[in-house]
Design a protein around this nucleic acid. Sequence first.
RNA 1: GGAGAGGUGGCUGAGUGGCUGAAAGCGCUCCCCUGCUAAGGGAGUUUAUCUGGAAACAGGUAACGAGGGUUCGAAUCCCUCCCUCUCCGCCA
Length: 422
Amino acid sequence: MLDINFIRENVETVKQGMINKGEKEPELVDQVLAKDEEWRAFVHKLDTLRSENNAKAKQIGMLMGQGKKEEAQAIIKETGQFKEEVKALEEKERILSEERDSLLYKIANVPHPSVPVGHTEDDNDVFATWGTPNNEEWRKPHWEIVERYGWVDFERGVKVTGAGFPFYVGPVAQLQRALINYFINEGVAAGFTELQAPYFVNEDSARGTGQIPDKEDMMYTIPRDEFFVIPTGEVPVTNYHRDEILKESDLPINYVCHTPCWRREAGSYGKDVRGLNRLHQFDKVEIVKIVKPETSYEELESLRDHAEKLLQALELPYRTLLMCTGDMGFTQTKKYDLEVWSPGQQRWLEVSSCSNFESFQARRMQLRYRKDGKSTEMVHTLNGSALALPRIVSAILEAYQEENGKVRVPEVLKPFFGREYL
RNA sequence: GGAGAGGUGGCUGAGUGGCUGAAAGCGCUCCCCUGCUAAGGGAGUUUAUCUGGAAACAGGUAACGAGGGUUCGAAUCCCUCCCUCUCCGCCA
């Protein structure tokens, strides 16, 4: 969420940001300010009343201490009305602040000035392209390749769990494991701290990174134990420092973490979900950065750069999109998507999304740092995939296949295989 | 899962109904003293939020695991939940 004081001082910027992101109700900005005004008036009233009440209680205490019971009794009589009044105001204050917060949760993060204004994916900027897409006719989509060799077992996945939960078999299982290893190793080599995280989180964590309220339908839940199954490693890793005040010298903090990700993907269909394109469970290596505000845009570039280098090392042609205002999420200020070329399908597949959230998540999480050893300030958080798995597997299968059907092992993965072909 | 003990500030740790937002110690910051080092002296040191103020700051409110309750008044009493530790059980 945004800082209410920031909204108050930047009404038009925030509203325009909502409009540019295609949010339907920019008037929420006015509503939250009105509600905040109302809340502040109430708080003032309530605090004054409490203050008077506290003074009386103190006085009673003193009189009792001196043995002046009668005088004390007289004041106790006076306090009766206060009590009910305070209670009523407290209730009202609670409702008002809840109403204000629920409005505040609906105010979108403001896009950075460098982000192109636009409504659809056609308005995204192509920030970079790398490599030359293979377009030979003989190249097959990955689902044909894996079927031919029995490398991914969709049917048994359906039997054991359901659609979208395949088994990876033999060489492809090995390929996936090698990729995870490679990505983590590269993260560690870049100086990031490797983390292994829980796959279930509690409600506070789901709220901290913004999965609830609003996007709860994307997550699987464990109702009996009140857990949410993580849709991305971003959730546990960013929440790792929730409710903390970090030292300035701790920053920047960089984590690399592999987790499976579970997404319900309700309503998906067609070519989008064919083969490994979209699954209910997939693996991902995630980078999370916790940084000082003044460095967050440099950090975003370095995050994007890190992810791009991985694709380059795998020699997979890709393009990097700078997402326009309308095509980026509610919580981000700036976002790059990396799309790898899928020569078997003749389309781009999103394999990474690198975002700056500025203090939007930090404020929800009360994640701050102490500046100059004095005041506290919200940190900025960023995250990005480096990289998302099954689609990289697809791209490798399709790009490294040879006309005779064999699939070569990418050079950088050879240490994990010790052979030329899958 | 069962039984018991406990959760207080950056840390240790006092506090069983009233001038306690919290003793004391440690740590940390600033100042003084000091040829250097060591030692010593003084001041400061939770967070959020509201009001006033350009600001420095001043004042109020809330918070002692979380949420409810009793009371004029709760860190302190009662209830529910969470977590930690010890023992038992189970287990990779």
